[in-house]
């Protein structure tokens, strides 16, 4: 009897040790092989959104509603941006005071500073149906207008002439993912999450920020709790 129970105990001990060993092994291996990739901000127009696209007089769709995009006139912008429609080469010339944009996801507020001077503070809408990434980013391109589409079913959206787009990226969130700050003509619920991952702004606000910001301007997105 004694021998039997001793064997039982040894068996149970072996099982427990094996279990712990397996857990430990999986924990060591998993980060190497897991390759979670943040989905594109705009799941259908992932690549296409990254280039200039002006489509005047085209309807958009959002929440099963037709929306009319703004007319985009590239000649209204400065010459260099008008030619390119995008700004990759107009770098910051005044480096005396660094420009920095902060987005607080908890308060749904964007603050833009040059040095210690506040340039703008305004409500925004971050991700509701898709996550807005947090961290430190750089603006890598500015595009006056592009088309964004994504979602499915009732959540499907197709939005031409999204105005004043500033795409940002870092080592973890590649430029190809298409996360950006941009103008918004399809909803007016700022101060509350509404997007699929991008930072939505009132068109009048983003127009000023677009003119102020440059390629290389830093963006910090944080939870603000």
């Amino acid at each position: 009897m004694k021998k039997r129970s001793k064997k039982k105990n040894q068996h149970a001990l072996r099982l427990i040790i094996s279990f712990i060993a397996i857990i430990g092994l999986v924990s060591l291996i998993y980060p190497t092989f897991s390759n979670y990739v943040l989905p594109c901000a705009n799941t259908l127009s992932c690549k296409e959104s990254l280039t200039l696209n002006v489509e005047n007089n085209q309807e958009g769709i959002f929440q099963n509603q037709k929306v009319m995009p703004p007319q985009i006139d590239l000649t209204e912008t400065d010459n260099q941006v008008a030619v390119l429609g995008s700004d990759t080469d107009i770098k910051e010339t005044d480096t005396s005071e660094e420009k920095h944009i902060y987005v607080n996801l908890a308060t749904q507020t964007l603050s833009a500073y040059q040095g210690d001077v506040l340039f703008m503070q305004t409500p925004i809408s971050s991700g509701l149906w898709g996550r807005t990434p947090t961290g430190e980013f750089d603006i890598w391109i500015k595009i006056r207008s592009t088309r964004m589409s994504g979602g499915s079913g009732a959540d499907f959206y197709d939005l031409p002439n999204v105005p004043y787009v500033m795409f940002f990226s870092n080592d973890q969130v590649a430029a190809s993912r298409g996360f950006s700050l941009h103008g918004t003509y399809w909803h007016n619920n700022f101060g509350h999450p509404m997007s699929h991952g991008c930072i939505n702004m009132k068109t009048t606000d983003i127009a000023k920020l677009y003119d102020w910001g440059r390629v290389g301007t830093k963006i910090t997105i944080y939870d603000g709790l």
Binding site: Q63, Q65, V67, W186, H187, N188, N189, G191, H192, M194
Partner: peptide, 11 residues
């Protein structure tokens, strides 16, 4: 009541 989800949809 926070705002408009679309031109005809009040949240």
């Amino acid at each position: 009541v926070t705002g408009w989800a679309a031109p005809n949809l009040l949240i």
